[in-house]
Simulated assay, not measured.
Amino acid sequence: MQVHNVELTISAVKPEQYPDKGYPEIALAGRSNVGKSSLINSLINRKNYARTSSQPGKTQTLNFYNIEDELYFVDVPGYGYAKVSQKEREKWGRMLETYFEKRQELKGVISLVDARHEPTKLDQQMVEFLHYYNLPLLVVGTKLDKIPKSKWNKAESTIKKTLKLTGKDRLVLFSAVTKQGKEDIWAWIEQQAQLESGAN
C-alpha cells in the first residue's frame, strides 16, 4: 500500500471510545522495547510518527492510527516491563481482552518478538491468548539486522518452536534498518484486511 496520509485518531481505553468508521483493524502487540514503534514507522514511511518512548511501558492505551482512510493500525500497550504495577498490568489485560474478544473490525494481530533471543514466557502467553481467540496471527521477529544471515534459519525455527506456531500462523523476520520483511508484512496486512493490493 502507498501510504501518504496517517492520523492518530484516538487513544482509547474502552469500547465506546473506539472509532466507528468500520474500517478493518490490524493490532500490533509486543514486549516493551521490541521495536513496535519502529515497525509502525517503517510501514507508514515515517521517521517518528509512532513515538519511540524513552520510558518503556508508557503506552497505556489502544492507539488507533487511521491509514489512508482504509484501515486502522491499533498499537496496544507493551507488556513485560517490570516498573508497571500488578494492578496496572491487570487493567491492561482486561482492556486487551475486551478488544480482542469483542471487536468485530479486528482482522488480525501482528505479534512482535526479538529475533535475537528465544521468545519469552510473556511472548508465549500472548500467542496462546491470540490462539484462544482464534485471531489471524503474524509473528514478526524484529532486529534482524543484528543477526548474521547464517543464523536466520535458526532464529526462525526457534521462534516457531517456542511459540508453538500452527500452520495458519505466519512468521516474518524484519529489520527496521534494512526494511527486510516489510513487503511480506504489508502483503499479510492487505490479505487480512481484504484491501486492494498495491506497491509499497
Rank of each mutant, 00 (worst) to 15 (best):
G93R: 02
T120E: 10
E90H: 06
V74L: 02
W188H: 10
T9H: 03
Q191D: 15
T166E: 12
G80I: 04
L165S: 08
I110G: 01
E25A: 03
K58I: 01
L106N: 02
R103C: 14
Y133V: 01
Q2E: 13
K83Y: 05
Y79A: 05
N41E: 09
K146R: 10
G78A: 07
P24A: 14
K149M: 06
I185G: 02
G181Y: 04
Q2R: 15
K168A: 12
K58S: 14
F129A: 00
W92K: 11
A12G: 04
K91P: 07
K151D: 11
E88F: 04
T120L: 06
L135T: 01
N63C: 07
L43M: 07
E183Y: 13
L137M: 01
S150F: 14
I40A: 01
P19N: 06
V127A: 11
F129W: 15
Y23D: 04
E128P: 01
T52M: 12
K121R: 03
S38H: 07
S53T: 08
L173S: 06
F129M: 13
K21L: 10
I159R: 08
R51W: 02
T178D: 00
Q60K: 14
K107N: 10
D145K: 07
Y133R: 09
K87G: 13
E101N: 09
N5V: 13
V109F: 06
E90I: 13
L195K: 05
K121L: 13
S150K: 15
F129V: 05
F174I: 01
G57A: 08
A82W: 14
A12D: 08
S37M: 08
L122K: 04
I189D: 03
N48V: 15
S111T: 03
K146V: 00
V177S: 13
L195S: 11
P77K: 02
N33Y: 09
K14N: 07
E190I: 01
T98E: 15
E25Q: 10
I67R: 13
D123M: 06
K164G: 05
E7P: 03
F129K: 03
Y65T: 05
R170V: 06
K151E: 07
D184N: 09
E128I: 01
A187Y: 10
T52A: 03
Y49V: 05
P136S: 11
N63Q: 08
P148T: 05
N41W: 06
G181T: 04
S38R: 10
N134G: 04
H117K: 15
W92A: 11
Y99S: 00
P148C: 04
F174P: 00
A155C: 09
S175Y: 07
L165D: 03
E68Q: 14
N66C: 15
P19G: 04
Y65V: 03
W188V: 15
